[in-house]
Simulated scan of single mutants.
Amino acid sequence: MQLLQTIEEVHKVFDTQGSSPLLVTCEDFRDWVCKYDRFPKYLFNELIGSEFAKLWDIKTPETSFIKVKPEHVPIGKFPQLQLTWFEKECFGSLYLENSKEIDHSIISMFEDKSFRNKISDKEDFLKIALFDIWIANEDRNYNNFNLLLYISPEKLNFFYAIDHVNIFNTSFLDYGIAELTEDDSIIKTDLAKILFGKNKKLSDIVDTLVEKFYLCTENCQNNLDEILDLVPESWNINRVQIKDRIIQNLFSEEWKAQCEDNFRGFVQSFIIN
């Protein structure tokens, strides 16, 4: 993964409840959403979550490591920032200008059939939900979709998954892994019901996603070493320890079977019924 450097002062601090990322411009003359060393282990979660999502063929913004130069951190303008947070490589996601973060203010748009027909990857919504169940992402739900609706140059709409800080039950697998509750899933949302409530092929869609689920998790396990090799030394991550934890928790047959059961149960309870 490429390492980029900033070329000018930070433009903006996004006002979020969590990591409050920055908007920066780098040497490739593109804008990036940059997360920094405020919560060190969360940078690792972002990296693992995005790399695993790519192996699932889930759309995510392009990623990179970013070095924010000290002179580009405007402490006077944003006093909540600390220079020490930028001594390590940051995690960057490409800023997608032609996108809108999904929230309750735009759910009504999806009720229009002509608008829904412009979404070429509706099934990805359920794939992302299954991914979250598997990786125990507690921060994509009714109150916080963490999804972008991206309009491509061809005028098609796509779902992009963002923000994987709170995977592993918002921890570092220190205490194992626990299944998501129904309130932690985007399946229990009006949007899920709008997209799939009248879909007569929903059972087939679910069966296909579950079949791919086992292939995707196997692909993630096969590429785990390569992904861990991406982790910067400056993050001070014990790779041997976290590899053991990931294998024991995410890739156990018991956990995968439990994820399948939860996924099917959520779909039955909140979409079909």
Rank of each mutant, 00 (worst) to 15 (best):
N157W: 15
F14E: 09
D132M: 03
N144E: 03
Y42Q: 12
V10C: 14
H72Y: 09
L148C: 04
D261Q: 11
F172S: 12
A53G: 10
I237G: 03
N238S: 10
S120K: 15
G76F: 12
F266I: 03
E71D: 14
S108C: 08
N144V: 01
D244W: 11
D28I: 00
F131P: 01
T181H: 14
L130F: 01
G76P: 01
G49N: 13
P153Q: 13
Q221M: 11
C259R: 07
S108H: 15
F110V: 00
N219K: 15
C34S: 07
I227R: 07
L130E: 04
I58H: 04
K54S: 08
L23R: 12
L149V: 05
S269R: 15
E87L: 07
S234P: 09
F65D: 02
E89P: 08
P70A: 00
E260S: 07
F131Q: 04
P79I: 00
D103H: 13
Q5Y: 12
C26F: 06
F110Y: 06
V267N: 09
P153L: 09
F65Q: 05
A178T: 11
L173Q: 09
L43M: 13
W255N: 12
I247C: 11
F131G: 03
P70R: 02
E111Y: 15
E46Y: 01
L149S: 05
V240D: 13
E89H: 15
W134A: 01
W32M: 00
C259A: 08
F251S: 06
F159N: 03
L209W: 03
K69C: 09
N157M: 13
P79M: 08
K155T: 00
R245V: 00
S120P: 09
A257T: 14
Q80V: 09
F168M: 00
L228K: 09
E62Y: 06
L3K: 14
K127S: 04
K59I: 03
F91V: 08
K122F: 05
F196Y: 07
